[in-house]
Design a protein around this nucleic acid. Structure first.
Lengths: 154, 154
DNA sequence: GTATCTGCAAACCCTTTGCAATAAG
DNA sequence: CTTATTGCAAAGGGTTTGCAGATAC
């Protein structure tokens, strides 16, 4: 299996872009990070390691990583973008507590045949799919039971 | 079945908020609209009807509608929020073409037992779930086949 | 050498907020 | 009467962009 760096270098070469240390350092940092990140956390963790790369460069690099399938955007509905690396990681989904904001990842094997079905029924070739679930974790529900009343859906 | 207006008035009364014509006009406009909308399109369609309500009031009203379960946020990853009415509509998911941006809605019956499973396995009470699929529609794939190569996932 | 990339700072855009006037209860 | 709500305009915060200098190829 190719490393994320190899994937990226191939992509850069194919497109006639340029291989720069900045982009590769950003990529390495992303794949050294566990879980989700955003531009700010990425910028700060690079700074803490003594690497000075501007936010503009980060903003310009992320679309490249997305485009070659290494990372993807994650929507937490909190006013800015989050990202996660997807290359080399199991497909997973997000379950977010509306009170404390904690995000749990889970798998949904039932969606295995989704791509085939959407191709057959609608003619779409599926690139990615993501299940976004909101609810209340046990702790928050017990702390404030009224918050979770009357809102259950199947 | 209650109308969306009744739902909203009940919610307003329960919380001790105030019933204003602005909020009810916004709500009516949302439920008279087919499909998705954003703040700007909502503001403009109100203007076209001669209704002058500030964007600030729209921005302040939407969280109320979300809170009482009438609408929800939709993420199209294009830099701003979109919304859709969910009250009185079938649960559905989104399939978006990465080239032309067209959004197709579809149903996924396989997720019927999701809520029960997440409760049993993780203790979460599910409020909402949404499946977000990206891919290429047939027309765009045939127009530019290279765009859809090497990116299929199950 | 030439075109791309970086860093900086300013511009941008969507969203939120402070404030005075207005209106609901 | 009291307090929430509105509209306006300004502030806010994340993201994008113009430009000059640096750098990959």
């Amino acid at each position: 299996m190719k490393s994320e760096l190899e994937i990226f270098r191939e992509y850069i070469r194919q497109r006639g872009f340029r291989r720069t240390p900045e982009r590769e350092v950003i990529l390495a940092e992303i794949f050294a990070t566990h879980g989700h990140f955003d531009v700010d956390s990425l910028y700060l963790s690079l700074r803490q390691k003594g690497v000075k790369i501007s936010k503009a460069s980060i903003y310009r690099a992320l679309p490249l990583f997305i485009d070659c399938g290494l990372i993807r955007e994650v929507d937490f509905s909190d006013g800015h973008w989050h990202y996660e690396h997807i290359y080399g990681h199991e497909q997973h989904h997000h379950l977010r507590c509306l009170t404390c904001g904690e995000v749990l990842e889970f798998e949904e094997p039932g969606l295995g045949c989704l791509g085939l079905r959407l191709l057959q029924e609608y003619g779409y070739t599926v690139v990615s799919h993501h299940l976004d679930v909101r609810g209340y974790c046990r702790a928050c529900r017990e702390a404030e039971p009224s918050a979770a009343l009357g809102k259950e859906t199947p």
